[in-house]
Amino acid sequence: MTDRSNDETIGITRRETLHGGAVASLALATPPAPAAAQLPAPARLPAHAREFGLQLATSINGEPVSVAIDARSSLLDVLREGLGLTGAKKGCDHGQCGACTVHLDGRRVASCLTLAAKADGREIVTIEGIADGETLHPMQQAFIDHDALQCGYCTPGQIMAAIACVKEGHASSREEIREYMSGNICRCGAYVGIVAAIEQASTKMRRA
């Protein structure tokens, strides 16, 4: 968060940090303010929202990003509506379908249930960030090879979850893949292909 106070005392000394609505990190004693703190005031946020707004400084797909957000925003809405990264999808907005899955500091999370503010200072990877130029990630290629999709709407979330599933070590058997991929609903019913794709990709990912 950018609006770090320079107060050296622990606790809140400025009433307005809470009642005036601005945001404050209370990490006042030790860590210096990050680079993002020096960025100019939110530009993209409508004036009314600034009062309850935050400046989010994060890394997305390896690029530093600083963006003004509404404190209420989900990470998913900031990615999609604020930054034009529409690969992550909204399928339920309540953590019940997995279509919004992204990696936060290397872990798969439901971005619809992640307050965007929580991503401050952390690294985000989305479906847009996993191919190497024109070369697909082995998981993307495996999804094509096994036709592990139909409409393609849940696919970005499936692929982000699948990559994490392999990296976590949860792809040792079909049964384990099925269990650890159950947070991603595919209404088209491409589960058989998804499991086969992950089996294929996990071998390639282990070799790489």
Binding site: M1, I10, G11, T17, L18, G21, A22, V23, A24, S25, L26, A27, L28, A29, P31, E51, F52, L54, D70, A71, R72, L115, A117, D120
Partner: peptide
């Protein structure tokens, strides 16, 4: 709307 504050210690929180 709400304010959002990140605490670093339990006491702060």
């Amino acid at each position: 709307q709400f304010t959002y504050t990140r605490a670093r210690t339990t006491a702060e929180a």
